[in-house]
Amino acid sequence: MALTRTAGAVTPAPAGARERGRRPARRRERTALLPTAILLLGAVYCLLPVVWVLTASTKDNAQLFNTFTFEPNGSLWSNVRSLSAYAGGVYWHWMANTALYAGGGALLSTVVSALTGFALAKYRFRGRSLLFNLLLAGVMVPPVVLALPQYLLMSKVGLVGSYWSVLLLSVLSPYGIYLARIYSMSAVPDEVIQAARVDGCPERKLITRIAVPMMVPGLVTVFLFQFVAVWNNFLLPFIMLSDENKFPLTVGLYTLLNRGSTAPALYSLVVTGSLLSIVPLVILFLVLQRYWRTDLAAGSVK
């Protein structure tokens, strides 16, 4: 127990947003109008497509083409129903697949990143810096360059087109390992490790019972970054999968749009599908706001 409390003290303070509001100097100063206006303009620009998809998805196909798209109509529910009915409900397959790829991939990725990051930060072993440099170099390999040979190799072992072809390739995250390494450096004090060893704690227990629990806040961040990365991934599933029932949302909606260019009747389905596809991530992002710790990445720059 005492050990965990030490960790709390070492854990970097959460992003400064909250203490900002409490700063007494901020009482009631005159509002700087122009800077506030510029900032708001940025916010409007960023919200524009989101507001558009909200209103556009309330339109049936005729309204989509004939009415001002920022003016809401009442067809959202019927759009959702025709989207659900499209090709035997394939849209919800895509949604479930995306959750599987992103959730499963990110979970496995977090475990691998935690172990590797911890080892790189806290052990001294032969090949440590070689491994770290190789992993860093791995960040720089463009995914497309890998995607083609990965596809060819996957087809050699007969995995192309399976869930595994996407899932297995979503596990290794050099960036996640890098974050886990930085985080375990600051969150797991050397003294704690030594004290555990002096007390005769076996190494496996030291990692699973002491180190990993101390790293949890950072690991949530690693999980979220990888979750978003897999959720956003298009190229890999686009190349690997051919069965519509295994598509994630990105590939599914892309093919739907592709069909829409010859059958514009599908456009309202694409719009509604786009809206529904961003809802889970936006919720996740708002609920877990405090875990979007970009300062972990920026921490190395301080």
Binding site: A17, R20, G21, A25, R26, E29, R30, T31, A32, P35, T36, L39, L40, G42, A43, V44, C46, L47, P49, V50, W52, V53, V228, W231, N232, F234, L249, T250, L253, Y254, L257, V270, S274, S277, I278, L281, V282, L284, F285, L286, Q289, W292
Partner: peptide, 27 residues
Amino acid sequence: RRVRLQRFSRLAIFLPYAVPTVIASLL
């Protein structure tokens, strides 16, 4: 200092990060 609506703007400007590039391109 003296700039208002900072919390709202920070959220709004960060929001596109939660939208996959394929979906963003669609929109």
